[in-house]
């Protein structure tokens, strides 16, 4: 979705407010992280659906409420969508309905082991990658109202296949609940001047990871 979360290449937000090493600014943020991970672990939705939920917030909220409030609002929206909580329950902070069954429950004693294991998204596929290292490719001019990890600043630009990462879960399909649909993932190297115009040094580059459906061979 073209939205305010897609900030690559924008310059309107002013200088970075540089912080040293704070992970949390308030104690409630620790709880939001814990609840978000615990609910993610139930398997009611996947990582890409939770990303899309964050991207679907009101733009003015997304830009102003801060990182963990974004997480919380997106989590509330997913809980409502999946009827795990009612609006009334959210507003009153009390449960009025029978707890619903979820697929899995992450027990406190298992958290460290589960987090250490991670959630790899690389997959084996039987077909060969369509592109090879060194191929000159154009990023397709795709505009979708759904979730994508194709940043707008590389759309319709030409780059070179720099590396092949293997096949990975395809977020565009996964976020729609269409299964993992693994696709080959490539690292694409763009000249800074190709993306951002001249004058940019001919020696500066930007790399971005792109799934195969984002790309086509450039006949230049």
């Amino acid at each position: 979705m073209s939205g305010v979360h897609d900030m690559g290449g924008l310059e309107c937000y002013g200088p970075i407010e540089y912080e040293t090493d704070e992970k949390f600014h308030n104690d409630w943020e620790r709880q939001v992280l814990a609840i978000t991970l615990a609910m993610g672990a139930t398997g009611t939705w996947n990582l890409d659906q939770s990303r899309f939920s964050r991207e679907s917030l009101e733009p003015s909220d997304y830009l102003s409420i801060g990182y963990y409030r974004i997480w919380l609002k997106a989590l509330e929206s997913l809980l409502l969508q999946h009827e795990l909580v009612t609006q009334h329950e959210l507003e009153t902070g009390r449960s009025y309905s029978e707890p619903k069954q979820v697929k899995r429950v992450l027990k406190a004693t298992d958290v460290a082991a589960v987090l250490k294991k991670g959630g790899p998204v690389s997959r084996e596929v039987s077909h060969e990658p369509r592109f090879s290292i060194g191929d000159v490719v154009r990023v397709k001019n795709i505009h979708t109202p759904k979730h994508t990890r194709l940043p707008s600043y590389i759309r319709n630009h030409v780059g070179i296949v720099h590396a092949i990462h293997g096949a990975h879960v395809y977020p565009d399909a996964h976020a729609q609940g269409l299964g993992e649909d693994p696709q080959w993932l490539y690292n694409i190297k763009f000249q800074a001047s190709e993306l951002f115009g001249v004058p940019r040094s001919q020696h500066d580059f930007t790399h971005a990871d792109c799934w195969e459906p984002y790309l086509e061979i450039h006949h230049g």
């Binding site: 998204v121 990890r149 990462h165 040094s201 500066d204 790399h207 971005a208 990871d209």
Partner: peptide, 12 residues
Amino acid sequence: TRISVWDSTAEV
């Protein structure tokens, strides 16, 4: 100085 930006757009 040559500058290369690596945008982490996937899970890599």
